[in-house]
């Protein structure tokens, strides 16, 4: 699998570290809503299809990327810097 890092160009999977589901939103840090925190920390949708996820280019520029990848074919639909797209 190749991920096209917007900074470094297309690089092999082995240079990247998976950093989790990018769909979740961190609750307000002041919130004590345990079910919201529980969902944020533990609950994930097991998507069959396009999945929005974080990858860090840990063996390269170290930027976190938001990657949209099909979990069925490994086809990568888009790659962007997390800093520019994170919610």
């Amino acid at each position: 699998m190749l991920i096209a890092c917007p900074y470094c160009g297309p690089r092999d999977l082995s240079e990247f570290t998976y950093q989790g589901d990018a769909n979740r939103t961190r609750p307000n840090p002041m919130s004590n809503d345990q079910s919201a925190w529980n969902a944020y920390v533990y609950e994930r949708v097991n998507t069959a299809g396009d999945h929005r996820e974080f990858w860090q280019h840990s063996g390269g520029c170290r930027a976190h990327l938001v990657v949209i990848r099909s979990t069925l074919t490994h086809e990568i639909k888009s790659v962007a810097f997390a800093r520019e797209t994170a919610k």
């Binding site: 950093q19 860090q56 976190h64 810097f81 994170a86």
Partner: peptide, 13 residues
């Protein structure tokens, strides 16, 4: 290091 980078990039840009 990765933990700090994650929060700076993805949570508190």
């Amino acid at each position: 290091m990765q933990h700090l980078e994650y929060y700076l990039d993805c949570v508190w840009p």
